[in-house]
């Protein structure tokens, strides 16, 4: 396996502030965290609720910026990039699955999945439709292509969001509790898909999960406690 790091965090500090009346309360979510993830790694991030997993994933995807420290993706310091460059980078290299799926309500399942391909003219409409249909079929949604998000169950929406994250064949897939809304049978579909992607194409995957069984399917588990790296275990 190629262990050249594709994601690297160096002394990352993240604070979030909440306004309470006139005063500002600063919460330090991640005091100082460093680790790196190699190309082709399949990693799970675990930890109790509120420990900072989502925050960490946002930083890795360039959706948020650290207060100090640096985040690198594919050798580039994304924590120093402009918003426009970040958007372009995400379209080219990143697939992101939100904890709360976040689909676009006016578009059908198929159109939601096609969008990252069309946004920057990465593919024509015909090719995009073909690829999106394939992915949705792999995820067991071949009969829901033309449903709008509000005509899908929570688990189906989650699977559409996963298809959308994968449609660009991203270098890195970041997924925040991708099986959170799924029954064990459908969760199994996702495990299988992710494992297959990782094994067959060397897809780098970082996922956040509460599910010990799912975490056990991966190759490495980063356990977070109060924003600190509590343990880093390589499996197999």
């Amino acid at each position: 396996m190629n262990t050249d790091p594709v994601i690297k965090l160096e002394h990352v500090r993240k604070e979030l502030s909440i306004r309470n009346g006139g005063e500002e309360l600063v919460n330090t979510i991640l005091p100082d965290i460093s680790f790196s993830i190699g190309r082709g790694e399949f990693t799970a991030i675990t930890g109790p609720s509120g420990s900072g997993k989502t925050t960490l994933l946002y930083l890795m995807g360039g959706l948020d910026k650290p207060n100090s420290g640096s985040v690198y993706l594919d050798g580039e310091e994304i924590s120093a990039m402009s918003e426009e460059d970040l958007a372009e980078m995400r379209n080219a290299k990143l697939g992101f699955v939100y904890q709360f799926h976040f689909l676009l309500p006016e578009f059908t399942a198929l159109e939601n999945v096609m969008m990252p391909l069309l946004a920057r003219g990465r593919a024509g409409v015909g090719d995009a439709r073909k690829r999106a249909t394939e992915l949705l079929s792999d995820l067991g949604l071949s009969d829901k292509l033309h449903n709008k998000p509000n005509q899908l169950s929570g688990g189906q929406q989650q699977r559409v969001a996963i298809a959308r994250a994968l449609v660009n064949r991203p270098m890195v897939l970041l997924a925040d509790e991708p099986t959170g809304n799924l029954d064990s049978k459908n969760a199994e579909v996702i495990y299988t898909l992710f494992s297959r992607l990782n094994e067959e194409t060397g897809q780098t995957i970082v996922l956040v999960t509460h599910d010990d069984h799912f975490a056990g399917e991966t190759r490495r588990i980063l356990h977070i406690l109060d924003g600190r790296l509590d343990s880093d275990r390589k499996l197999r």
């Binding site: 918003e83 426009e84 958007a87 080219a92 990143l94 676009l104 969008m115 946004a119 920057r120």
Partner: peptide, 16 residues
């Protein structure tokens, strides 16, 4: 706004 953020996070350009 939320849709704008989602589209941006999947790489839609600011200009678009």
């Amino acid at each position: 706004q939320r849709d704008i953020a989602i589209m941006k996070s999947m790489g839609v350009s600011i200009r678009s």
